[in-house]
Write a protein that binds this DNA or RNA. Structure first.
Lengths: 170, 170
DNA sequence: TAGCTATAGTTGCCCAAGCAGTCGTTGGGC
DNA sequence: GCCCAACGACTGCTTGGGCAACTATAGCTA
């Protein structure tokens, strides 16, 4: 077999993206863990916290996260059990329910966020000069726009503001 | 709560990285699936195929992939069942065994790789002019070097050729 | 208003993977 | 040569998450 295939610059490029992502994710996970949160829980918490009223319908939450609706049901189960979230009935549609961040949940998030930002700074954004960082982010944005975050977010319809979120604005 | 925290450029930066990665991963997974492979299986196959003799000891394979040793045991189980791999006893150390790619495994890989490269080209490298791509990869490399892929790979010792790619060095 | 279809959420079942414990093997110290 | 700590692989147990089936509600159409 053509051994050189694996030296193809395209393979290398993907390798870099994957490794950078994996490395950062590991750092994040370790810090979340210090605050008793899993990566998904942190994601859920931020998504809710940035939404009006600190709440979101289960489906919308699923659309904004990396989870399926059944996945959301279970994460919310756990987080409700841990007191970070509550379910609240939707007055206008009895099928729907909101996941709402509790005071305790907000507090947990407040405790976690500063460290999280520090880690991003330390291992990601702070690694590059402003100009190089800008170039990196521009590139990522173009790739992101191409592959469409639809895979992850793409909640068509009711999602506010075209989504975005852990995403990008522009 | 300070709503603006979520507009922090650091959060946005991470969002871009995560979404670009997730979007690409989804495309890859879909194409792998067309060839009856999961992402892990593809990773295992490439790692072995690029190693001398198309083989690697279980532990080294684990070190080069995103899996634990027990994870490797099971993936290799499945792939052996499917005829893509075989286990071979290590003559010099009876504790170790090699995972070896079979002819059928190599063929599967050959069928899969061209499409994979095409997808990388189409959604990633081909999205940017050469200069912008170079800048993106430089940035990724610096971040990767900082977070050390050690978290994912870190196979000290016997790993061949300093590797690269989805891997890590020293 | 009766009926039909689409939607929101939950649950049963399954699978993939990690951790920790086990067993056999090895190699160094003496 | 003997002993013991370290190592390589595998297995039991548990956890997280997806898909598909199911229930209840909405809302359109006639």
């Amino acid at each position: 077999m053509n051994q050189n295939v694996f030296d193809d610059p395209r393979i290398t490029a993907v390798g870099l993206l994957v490794e950078a992502h994996a490395g950062l994710s590991a750092r994040f996970a370790a810090q979340f863990d210090e605050h008793g949160l899993s990566p998904v829980e942190f994601e859920v918490l931020t998504r809710l916290a940035r939404s009006p009223g600190n709440q979101l319908r289960m489906t919308d939450l699923a659309a904004q996260t990396s989870l399926s609706t059944s996945g959301v049901t279970r994460v919310v189960d756990r987080m409700e059990r841990d007191g970070l979230l509550t379910r609240r009935a939707c007055p206008s549609d009895r099928r729907s329910s909101y996941a709402v961040v509790t005071a305790s949940g907000m507090q947990r998030l407040d405790e976690t966020l500063p460290g999280h930002l520090r880690i991003i700074e330390q291992w990601f954004t702070g690694q590059l000069e402003p100009e190089a960082l800008r170039a990196l982010l521009d590139g990522l944005r173009r790739v992101r726009d191409a592959v469409h975050p639809g895979a992850t977010a793409g909640s068509a319809g009711s999602a506010p503001a075209e989504d975005e979120a852990v995403a990008a604005r522009h």
